[in-house]
Design a binder for these strands. Structure first.
Length: 500
RNA sequence: GUCCCCUUCGUCUAGAGGCCUAGGACACCUGGUUUUCAUCCAGGCAACAGGGGUUCGAAACCCCUAGGGGACGCCA
């Protein structure tokens, strides 16, 4: 048996997600336990959504958590490059091979035709998928289309009958009919591969032996297995982990839970506590010990002890665990050191000082003024929102709309936030001063404070969102019915102001 | 709509046919320690989704039902 090699393959399209860290943790433990290697690969084949900042953040988040990889874009290795955008040629030659051997074909269908097709299949209650329109194009047809400059995609062929058996380390064989499997696009019209192709090619070339990934992939496993077969490669062992859940059991999402690793860092959690907590999701130490280090987890790790029910990410239990680390695992000196590192991060201070400098006369004025940058949630109650122009319902609506508005921002810069909020206030027909009032309360806990727009720019999206959610809850929360109405009203506003 | 996966206290879990009157932890409640609070300590509340089998014996194995979740993109 060759060396065990596992990988985490995040796509750099946003804040580093705790779900990514969760899967990374189990891959890391499995590899280390078997004396193998853990690889980090960046799956940035989505040109539109991938960006460098996100990649940097993901690497930083995993490093912060102490999940060290052996090979990756930052440290190289024998199987690089480790960034898919730098491997285009590799995918091209592989897709050529599939084409030559008749396992794949060019498809010229427009997205309009495809969405029409989907609609029709929906009404006919048939399984959704490509209908094979371009499956049997003649060489001349194809030449014609290419001549007309219609950019093709390349799809994989799929057996029409029979079924595929997916073996999984954690569950019984999963049997899926080939009829359920779509003729997946392997190569997009921009010439870059889709996940399915890139993933299979890279896992093989990087000699990955065990693919431990989220349960969401189980349905596409047959596509991957089929590709391995087409290429004549031996597939890795598959293992599908349960998905982390929100309190309502839906897949963990940023809308309902702070889901970025950065949030927990900013809120003052210790990385070892977060790591420990993730290790308790779907897994437990053989003796049920609750507090354990990454090393302890690795030496006691057994993938077969993973339970398959999707665990709810319970922030309260994380708080308790983190408290224990703070109290029990750190000496006073370590505590001082770790706290200082957290509180006096140069980036953070550089952003905050210009905001407070003009408002202080003594250093002793700083703490009360800047406290809200460091505290978890401002201490506020319903009374805090008393205002001569705005009723509580108005405040609630404003906060909810702001939450939605900043959610859609493609970049987190002061000016972008300002513009967005100004436009929103205008479209709601509310004076800026009144409009901003509930935001001040929600973010800073007081209307006497540093510029609220600068402040949320410093605090970041996750913390801002958490505070907005908190404030809305204090104002009585939003019922399902209210939410529906608000959504409608908000959509109308967006339409009116022509915003996207 | 089609397919797939899952199901033990509110939550994280232990459980590999008899050790189960189902254990631990978070949360919650009660009491103790503490000038207060927190910590800490002691105690309490609370679950095998339902129905059929298999078996001397089922939380565990099988089947059905129900519930939950996921997938169905030129996203990953």
């Amino acid at each position: 048996m060759s060396e065990v090699r596992t990988r985490i393959a995040p796509s750099p399209t946003g804040d580093p997600h705790v779900g990514t860290a969760y899967i990374a943790l189990f891959n890391l433990c499995y590899a280390r336990q078997h004396g193998g290697k853990f690889i980090l690969r960046i799956e940035d084949t989505d040109q539109v959504r991938s960006n460098q900042k996100s990649e940097d953040d993901i690497l930083a988040a995993l490093s912060w958590l102490g999940m060290n990889w052996d090979e990756g874009p930052d440290k190289g290795g024998d199987f690089g490059p480790y960034r898919q955008s730098e491997r285009s040629d590799i995918y091209k030659t592989h897709v050529e091979k599939l084409l030559d051997e008749g396992h794949a074909f060019h498809c010229f269908c427009s997205s309009e035709r495809l969405s029409e097709l989907r609609k029709q299949q929906m009404t006919e209650k048939k399984p959704l998928g490509y209908d094979g329109h371009c499956l049997n194009l003649s060489d001349s047809d194809r030449a014609d289309k290419l001549q007309q400059n219609i950019p093709p995609v390349i799809r994989m062929k799929v057996p029409e009958t029979g079924s595929c058996v997916v073996k999984d380390m954690l569950r019984d064989d999963v049997t899926i009919d080939w009829q359920q499997i779509d003729m997946q696009v392997l190569m997009k019209s921009d010439g870059l591969p889709t996940y399915h192709l890139a993933n299979v090619v890279d896992d093989h070339l990087m000699q990955i032996t065990h693919v431990i990934r989220g349960e969401e992939w189980i349905n596409s496993a047959p596509k991957h297995l089929l590709l391995y077969q087409y290429f004549g490669w031996e597939p890795p062992v598959l293992c599908h982990m349960p998905l982390l859940r929100n309190a309502d059991k839906s897949k963990l999402s940023k809308r309902k839970n702070p889901a970025s690793v950065g949030y927990y860092q900013r809120m003052g959690y210790l990385p070892e506590a977060v790591c420990n907590f993730l290790g308790m999701m779907g897994w437990s130490m053989p003796d049920e010990q609750e507090m354990f280090s990454l090393e302890e987890m690795i030496s006691n790790f057994d993938i077969n002890r993973v339970s398959l029910g999707g665990p709810v990410f319970d922030a309260e239990k994380l708080d308790w665990l983190n408290g224990r680390y703070l109290r029990e695992a750190l000496s006073d000196d370590e505590f001082i050191q770790r706290f200082s590192q957290w509180a006096f991060q140069p980036d953070m201070l550089q952003a905050i000082v210009p905001l407070i400098k003009q408002r202080v006369e003594r250093f002793s004025d700083i703490a009360p003024l800047a406290a809200f940058f460091f505290s978890g949630m401002p201490t506020i109650d319903e009374q805090s929102f008393e205002h001569k122009q705005l009723k509580h319902e108005d405040a609630k609506k404003i906060l909810q709309f702001i939450a939605w508005r900043i959610e859609g921002l493609d970049a987190w810069h002061r000016d972008r936030i300002e513009t967005a909020l100004m436009l929103l206030a205008e479209s709601m027909g509310i004076k800026i001063r009144d409009f901003l009032f509930p935001l001040f309360i929600a973010i800073a806990g007081s209307s006497v404070s540093t510029s609220v727009i600068d402040s949320i720019a410093v605090l970041g999206l996750d913390i801002t969102r958490a505070r907005l959610r908190h404030a809305i809850a204090i104002l009585g929360g939003v019922s399902k019915k209210q939410l529906k109405n608000l959504e409608k009203e908000y959509a109308a506003l967006e339409q009116k102001s022509g915003q996207s």
